[in-house]
Design a protein around this nucleic acid. Structure first.
Length: 806
RNA sequence: GCCGAAGUGGUGGAAUGGCAGACGCGACGGACUCAAAAUCCGUUGGUAGCAAUACCGUGCGGGUUCAAGUCCCGCCUUCGGCACCA
């Protein structure tokens, strides 16, 4: 009689050691086998340690990776550390410890925590973005981007904390105030490194049609890129050669353009300063707009402000009518041309502005009432008051107008994107140094590839300087170098790269992580890429996921990688909330620590609960009782060993169907990430074993194989205790018998007019005719149809018989 | 305002247009125990009924269908993201 207790704390350590010693999960460099590359977002090793969100993603792909190995694939399931970044630097400043040391400690703790959960990572391929042998290649990619004109320096407004006197990353600005000191954040123009991601806007959009990403990821990226089609049109300025160029998506409404608006920073104002009579008012307005914080700007988004430019007017190029030019901060310098033609009849913002300042509103699309509201319906409206466009629908009018503009040389077709270039500078210490030297004679000079990596020097203080420059600026020995071209005294770039740099290509490094000649060998990249399945958080959709696609598209264009897109499939998990249904956070006091949970119920039960708690793609509150329920389930699985019938061969007759259909359901559900229903199916099977009171060796084998990707330690241990042979991780994934999925007899519902009147066991091969007879004869049905006429009979084999009567 | 996701028992959630509530949590009852814990067995949407059973029930209002949680039209609410993008 089997009586050993289930002790996860013992067997989990035991099997982790065995897997480790046997290199069970090491990806092979055998490029002849079919491969599977599963990826999760590599963690940022924060001081707080692992939280319960990490294991949700990791376990999901771990299940897939373990299943793929059993299916015979050569599997790459790597792990690494995205270790540059602000929290580490801030912690280092506060506690006076070197960031490199903080990172080392945090990585060690994270690795220990992850190992405890039993993920089948290939730890021999670990990468760390702060390792010079890694960031050497991050810098190399930067040089390539620079060489191809995709990295440039520009005056860009950044977030500026008025109290700390430092530039802040967007992530550090919370509700318009500084995350650290709580004071106001304004826009300040600084010289910044930029990456020309906008050049890839169309490719980033087109690529989405070629990959298997969940729809909401595609939609969010499409919205973020924000493609819009229209035209750029030149408006002459009266009595001048200067033209004012605008972008519009509604060229059809050109006849209704009654004024123009330029953004406060528009160059027109200074260029035509001589002709403008209220220059000081305009400059004052511009200064005011600059002083506004982002927060204020959105707060004020309801009301419109503006100043008319006095002294110059524009001409509507179609009607020839003279129209005023205004300045307003609702027009952004960073989109389109920084100037618009205002059509108040058919644009809500223009309408509001016109009403505020008493500007004329002309209806050019009939269908609404332009005195009451802007009419912007493009599907219904018909053009009026528009000369040669009259009577046309909006779509047709757009085409006709653009053709006309191009023929007359007034304007041309144009596509615009909301996507902005990527601000790539941080005035921070803990990031990759940008490998550029600024020479007073030669301008920016890139380092030679052979001089990489450009090491991050050790400094005394990690605080930003008073001028808002990186701490590197104070390192005179490091900063002052001769120009590599002319030898004149020059200075190194002191900004560092943002955290997104290292994570934009880490999946390539995993393919060949120890290569010191190239970022990865061609063969390794050809074999492993693209990533077959990438799971991660929705919060990265328009950041990391977009940035890394951009880098990969670029690396494809310069011949480093074969395929344009890095990820074949992208899925996303729902966030785990606290027990009270709120987001987990220290301040709310509802954080669940995975270590505590594992101490109580073991890693296998923890993994099982992470997958069982609910639909994988939905946000879901944590329930410690629910997690304990999963431990109970594993206890029941363990105790199956007390009821093994060692005499019985194969599957017992009455469980054949259950076992086969469970194998099918679990196999299919794992692929669809329906882990909760897969586990439910296994619970049901275990309940059936208990009903029967015994289990055969074959039945137990099937269960252990199915359960092993979810709860690998207990399954390995039971496999060994039962003497089933070679370790479980080396076993093939179970198949099922198509002929053993349906019972000979099935229960069907008997319905009258769609209402259930009875249930009946019938042979599963029952024909429509036989069914009809049975139905009519059934007492419950006979009573229901007495005195009525049968109109129709609906027969769904194996499901129901429905009689329609009148 | 725009985009997206979602509203089902006390609770987390199941359900290719085909018997709503699988599986788990909680609760209740029973067995074992001196007792408790653990474990095992059972009950658990609502109303009425001793019962068989009947009626009602998937955010709200309509519709399509023999049949709707599921499809269509019109709303309401919650959550997430974006937000003056011309």
């Amino acid at each position: 009689m089997f009586s050993q207790p289930y002790q996860p704390e013992v067997i989990e350590k035991k099997w982790q050691k065995i897997w480790d010693e046997q290199h069970a999960f090491t990806a092979k460099d055998d490029y002849s086998k079919p491969k599977f590359y599963g990826l999760i977002e590599f963690p940022y090793p924060s001081g707080a340690g692992l939280h319960v969100g990490h294991p949700r993603s990791n376990t999901a792909i771990d299940i897939i990776a373990r299943k793929r190995r059993m299916e015979g694939y050569n599997v790459l399931y790597p792990i690494g550390w995205d270790a540059f970044g602000l929290p580490t630097e801030n912690y280092a400043i506060k506690n006076r410890i070197a960031p490199a040391k903080v990172t080392r400690d945090n990585v060690d703790r994270f690795r220990r925590q992850l190992k405890r959960i039993g993920f089948s990572f290939d730890y021999s391929r670990e990468v760390n973005t702060t390792d010079p042998s890694y960031y050497r290649w991050t810098q190399w990619i930067f040089l390539k981007l620079y060489e191809h004109g995709l990295a440039y320096k520009a005056e860009m407004p950044i977030n500026w904390c008025t109290s700390c006197k430092v530039g802040l990353a967007n992530e550090e600005v919370v509700n318009g105030v500084c995350e650290r000191c709580g004071s106001e954040v304004i826009r300040k123009v600084k010289n910044q490194w930029m990456l020309r991601i906008t050049k890839y806007a169309q490719k980033l959009l087109d690529g989405l049609d070629t990959v298997d990403f969940i729809e909401r990821v595609k939609t969010q990226q499409r919205n973020w890129i924000g493609r819009s089609e229209g035209a750029e049109v030149n408006f002459p300025i009266k009595g001048s050669e200067r033209k004012l160029r605008v972008f519009t998506t509604r060229p059809d409404t050109l006849f209704g353009a009654t004024y123009m608006v330029v953004s406060p920073e528009h160059p027109l104002i200074e260029e035509m300063a001589d002709h403008i009579s209220n220059l000081s008012a305009l400059r004052e307005y511009r200064a005011q707009a600059a002083r506004k914080s982002d927060f204020e700007r959105t707060e004020l988004a309801t009301g419109k402000t503006g100043v008319a430019i006095e002294g110059i007017t524009a001409l509507n190029p179609i009607t020839g009518k003279e129209i005023p030019i205004w300045v307003s901060d609702y027009v952004l310098m960073s989109y389109g041309t920084g100037a618009i033609m205002a059509v108040p009849g058919h644009d809500e913002r223009d309408w509001e502005f016109a009403k505020t300042f008493g500007l004329p509103i002309v209806e050019v699309v009939a269908g609404g009432d332009v005195e009451k509201a802007a009419y912007s319906d493009i599907a219904e409206g018909t053009l009026v008051n528009s000369g040669f466009l009259n009577g046309l629908g909006v779509d047709q009018a757009k085409k006709t107008m653009i053709d006309y503009l191009e023929k007359e040389g007034i304007g041309e077709r144009k596509v615009n994107y909301k996507l902005r270039d990527w601000v790539f500078s941080r005035q921070r210490y803990w990031g990759e140094p940008i490998p550029i030297i600024h020479c007073p004679h030669c301008g920016p000079v890139p380092l030679k590839e052979s001089d990489l990596p450009l090491l991050l020097p050790e400094v005394e203080h990690y605080e930003m300087s008073d001028s808002g420059e990186s701490p590197l600026a104070l390192m005179e020995d490091w900063v002052n170098v001769p120009c590599p071209v002319c030898g004149a005294p020059a200075k190194r770039e002191t900004d560092t790269m943002p955290q997104w740099a290292g994570s934009s290509w880490y999946f390539l490094r995993y393919c060949d992580p120890h290569n010191d000649r190239e970022l990865a060998s061609q063969e390794a990249l050809d074999y492993w890429m693209p990533v077959d399945w990438y799971n991660g958080g929705m919060e990265h959709t328009t950041l990391h996921l977009l940035y890394s696609r951009f880098w990969h598209l670029f690396l494809h264009d310069i011949g480093v990688v074969k395929a344009p897109e890095p990820y074949q499939k992208r899925t996303s998990h729902g966030m785990i909330l606290g027990e009270n249904g709120e987001k987990m956070s220290k301040s709310r006091g509802n954080v669940i620590n995975p270590d505590d949970m594992i101490d109580e119920i073991g890693a296998d039960a923890f993994r099982t609960y992470e997958m069982f708690m609910g639909a994988f793609d939905q946000p879901i509150p944590w329930s410690t009782n629910g997690a304990r329920g999963c431990r109970r389930f594993l206890d029941r699985v363990w105790r199956l060993q007390e009821m093994v019938d060692s005499e019985a061969k194969g599957l017992s007759k009455d469980l054949e169907i259950s076992v086969n259909s469970t194998i099918r359901k679990v196999s299919e559900d794992f692929e669809r990430m329906k882990f909760n229903t897969a586990i439910a199916a296994m619970m049901t099977l275990v309940n059936e074993f208990y009903q029967k009171g015994s289990v055969t060796g074959e039945e137990l084998k099937a269960l252990l194989l199915l359960l092993s990707p979810v709860a690998p330690h207990i399954c390995e241990e039971m496999w060994e205790l039962q003497g089933f042979g070679e370790p479980l991780y080396k076993q093939p994934w179970p198949g099922y018998d198509e002929n053993k999925l349906v019972a000979d007899e099935v229960e069907i519902a008997l319905q009258i007019n769609g209402k259930v009147r009875g249930k009946l066991m019938v042979p599963s091969t029952l024909s429509r005719e036989e069914g009809e007879k049975i139905l009519i004869d059934h007492p419950a049905v006979a009573a229901g149809i007495a005195g009525k006429t049968v109109v129709k009979l609906v027969f769904v084999p194996g499901r129901l018989l429905n009689l329609v009567v009148k």
